[in-house]
């Protein structure tokens, strides 16, 4: 589903590359944790998948397609196939829960009828039944992140990228979020989650890819967060 083929990304030619000759293959339906300290290249990885940046060297394949060959007018189509969730939720503060999720469908031209049918289903999937008309500031952090997840998956993307989705949440709430991500994964969506949270990684027992200084230093099929102190530091 996502393949990095000897990918190097250099932002500033005088300093060390953000990603250094990374080769990685993530299959359809996999659940992968991307761990590593701040600056280890996790965010760059996500940006490259979204074609927010171009690889300096090597090729990034998403759903079998080399993203470098996607013309700029087709990039929106690439992004429709990828849902993204962030640490800071990024909800629209002046829109209700329903409107926040519906927004993702409106902007790609879905009809009102389809939206009215789909959004409540997705809100149910993330456990927010009956909160359609709440405003984001009336919700807890965990609930806000659920809205963000609902928005990310409402267009049924094949890939869900989560950039530290539990970074602002307490452990109990975080586990709730992980359950939702797991359910989404079990429904066939490939999930890539960048995280610092060792509890979550150790509990989930999924594939763990560890980045350090832009290189993959570990790729365990059912890994743990790893006991290395420098990895814990970030």
């Amino acid at each position: 589903m996502i393949r990095f083929d000897d990918v190097t990304k250099t932002y500033d030619p005088t300093s060390q590359p953000a990603l250094d000759a990374v080769s990685l293959d993530i299959d359809r339906g996999e659940f992968v944790f991307l761990v590593g300290a701040s600056g280890s290249g996790k965010s760059t990885f996500i940006r490259l998948v979204l074609k927010e940046d171009r690889a300096s060297r090597g090729a990034v394949y998403v759903a079998g397609q080399n993203v470098a060959n996607i013309p700029s007018w087709r990039v929106p189509r690439l992004r429709r196939g990828i849902g993204v969730v962030f640490q800071d939720f990024r909800l629209l503060p002046n829109k209700t829960v329903f409107a926040n999720v519906a927004f993702a469908m409106q902007v790609i031209g879905r009809s009102r009828a389809v939206i009215r049918e789909t959004v409540p289903d997705v809100l149910a999937t993330v456990g927010l039944e009956g909160k359609d008309n709440r405003m984001p500031h009336e919700l807890s952090g965990g609930e806000q992140q659920r809205v963000a997840i609902a928005r990310a998956i409402v267009n049924r993307p094949g890939i869900l990228l989560a950039d530290e989705p539990t970074g602002n949440l307490d452990p109990t709430t975080s586990m709730g979020i992980m359950k939702i991500l797991d359910t989404i994964n079990q429904n066939g969506t490939t999930v890539v989650m960048a995280t610092h949270d060792d509890d979550i990684v150790n509990t989930m027992r999924k594939r763990v890819v560890e980045l350090r200084g832009g290189s993959v230093v570990r790729d365990d099929a059912q890994g743990i967060y790893a006991g290395r102190p420098e990895a814990m530091a970030g």
């Binding site: 979204l50 007018w73 929106p76 189509r77 690439l78 992004r79 429709r80 196939g81 990828i82 849902g83 993204v84 990024r90 629209l92 927004f103 993702a104 902007v107 790609i108 031209g109 928005r151 990310a152 267009n155």
Partner: peptide, 17 residues
């Protein structure tokens, strides 16, 4: 910018943005 950022992420076309 919040709106347009989200629009980009969910794959809105350039015209819609």
């Amino acid at each position: 910018r919040r709106e347009t950022g989200i629009m980009r992420l969910v794959g809105a076309s350039k015209a819609i943005i």
